[in-house]
Design a protein around this nucleic acid. Structure first.
Lengths: 222, 222, 222, 222
DNA sequence: CATGAATGAGAGTTCATTCAT
DNA sequence: GATGAATGAACTCTCATTCAT
């Protein structure tokens, strides 16, 4: 129902890959490591297959049978790795957000001190989205059905602050009269560019539009 | 898979009202009686109910039973007016697009001759979206799952040109070196603002950001 | 896990047939009464089919598909009348218990004043079980899987007291040194007789053993 | 559907140990070493685990995975010892019945010659049930779903006669007019007491009711 | 011998659609 | 036109059983 995060604000590193260290007992014909590797591989195969289909068709239009087929495994096996179809979605989301967060982490500890750094931050984000198009398709689609996002609301709110704070500090220092609005405007513009990049790729090339984006940033700042 | 329309470029009246012949034959200004009759029209009641639910919960998560309940009619009656649940979606979309197109029509016949006219065009669009939030939520959500849109692709491509052409002409005349990119950038920015307005309403107020949008337009133009 | 009711102690009349008065609106082509009748009929048909199968094969070994087949309806229709397979079981149980309770009600208001009245009470119960063999098969089988019974524990505890109290009063008055044990012994004997009547019908005829039961009662009393 | 055995009448040694040849070939008194070896025996471990779960949750609600977990072995290993989950049940039943039969064997060769001996027989049986509660829970539960028992029907009919014969002879000699009924009544009473002992333990203490049982027996006899 | 990943049939349940009334 | 009971395909999920290791 209510959601209060910017679109591009993501979770932090404290979310750890919980489900990859378990199941390593020591009494099997297959070595524990083999099994753990196997498990990890299948887990990733399933998540990749599911992501591909979720991104293309949407969560509700994708059946577990289709995921299994896409992953070339039996339907039932999926439930050895995930509790439910919804868990697959949540796991993909969590790991995808963790991943994205790393991009921000690079800029996290040292405060932004120049326009160039903002440009780098945004450029890194754009590249990330281009590298992980399917995940970001899913990411944007999740905003349409907020109940799915509720699970992540806390993490995203926390992360939001981490992203907003340094930018805010920079714009405040620059003497921006309404830095909150500036940030929202920049973020919305980015959303629009990325959204078109993802869902309108035929005629939309973000590379060609970057100069306009930089110009916009510079004008906002000065 | 492939789709080649800008987000805010919509169909025009030349799209024939295939599935709406029963109740909305005449597109001319309606008398008060006609309007009240329209409200009574089961077809409209069903579409309104469906739109509310599709926008809130998504197409696949909305059942025909729920639509019937929301419309306060029997489930079976829906099939007297629509062939299928998907037909309801397509009809809503088609009529919604037609409606939006009328906004553009105001600017259609007389070529754009001033920055102020562009501002008016965009302002009219923003107001249209704010007035019909539910439809535009549905509209954006359909871009995420392109296979639903395939039915409209041709119409939208045609309409896209109609929107693009006058803008293009204006920016060309203004001496813009890359008017196509300018248009894409403006349109993407608008998408970002509207997307956030629709799906992030808690912290996003487009009214406060309009000045920044006008400034951006002016700087793009000059 | 814990259960503290005697086997033959049942719920009281205060449990009303909740699910038979609803769904009587007044605007349908089929009259409301027709529909209500229809609903009631199907409900009973489904419950009868389910009871037959639950009694014979057990709850867990009976599939919803089998119930549908036995009831000669489509699988899905069952879910118009019952939320789940477990709800069918619970409804059958509740209505069956209500029904049995009526037997006790006949003896409820006037305190037991003679051995003959106890004999009549028990005879009525035996006849009830013979008339509703399938229900009582189900009833006894439920003791094997206490978690199903948990839902009825409160009602049964309440009813238990209603059954126990008058008997207890009678045995106390008669000067029985340990009336609680007497009641438990009688009840267990009855359980044994009824259990064999239900599940060992080939060689077990309760009619022939009634004289021994009456003799036992008389000797317990005197 | 049809079943023609009394509840407490069990199979004798003539029932061939089909599925237990691997580990329990010799039925003679076991040495301490043999016993300890038996404990190690995976077959026994699996059966014990399965019995515990079947008794508590029922056959159909117990999964092979749960049995494996309870037995602390791998799921697959179960299928080295048993053909199927149903085979586990049948083997448990068969061996449990064999075991119980030994109680009767003590009284088998020397004909019953006094009321005291009947009391001893019944007391031995009660103690057996109290010692092996889980098995007898399973045993009673199997009567409710006769199709599971079909496999044992022949054996049990044969054993029934062996139990019935000496008792019958005794009651005939005592001058009982309807000794078959007497036996059925005693057996049913015992069923009732044991059933309550097993499934209604909270309020039911067979120890306190034994005097009433002995009194009943004495009165039946005299 | 021992493991648990893998399979796939079948379970309970939902829901778009049909149709007798 | 209007109803909602009825259908059955398709869904998510479970689990007995198999088998490569």
């Amino acid at each position: 129902m209510n959601q209060s995060n910017n679109f591009l604000i993501l979770t932090d590193q404290s979310v750890i890959n919980e489900s990859s260290t378990e199941s390593s007992k020591n009494m099997s014909p297959r070595t524990a490591q083999q099994l753990s590797q196997l498990k990890q591989d299948k887990r990733v195969i399933i998540m990749d297959a599911a992501l591909r289909l979720f991104a293309e068709k949407g969560f509700h239009s994708t059946s577990v049978a289709e995921i299994a087929k896409e992953a070339k495994i039996a339907k039932g096996l999926i439930y050895s790795y995930f509790d439910s179809k919804e868990t697959i979605l949540k796991t993909i989301t969590k790991e995808g957000l963790d991943d994205t967060f790393k991009v921000f982490s690079l800029f996290h500890n040292t405060p932004i001190q120049s326009d160039e750094q903002i440009k780098q931050l945004i450029d890194a984000l754009i590249n990330r989205v281009l590298e992980k198009k399917e995940f970001y398709k899913l990411y944007y689609s999740m905003f349409l059905h907020p109940h799915v996002m509720e699970a992540f609301e806390a993490e995203m709110a926390e992360a939001a602050a981490k992203f907003t704070a340094p930018l805010l500090a920079y714009f405040v220092e620059k003497g921006d009269e309404d830095p909150e609005s500036t940030i929202l405007f920049i973020q919305a513009t980015l959303d629009g560019l990325l959204f078109n990049t993802l869902f309108n790729p035929h005629i939309f090339r973000i590379e060609k539009l970057k100069p306009k984006l930089w110009k916009l940033l510079k004008k906002e700042i000065s």
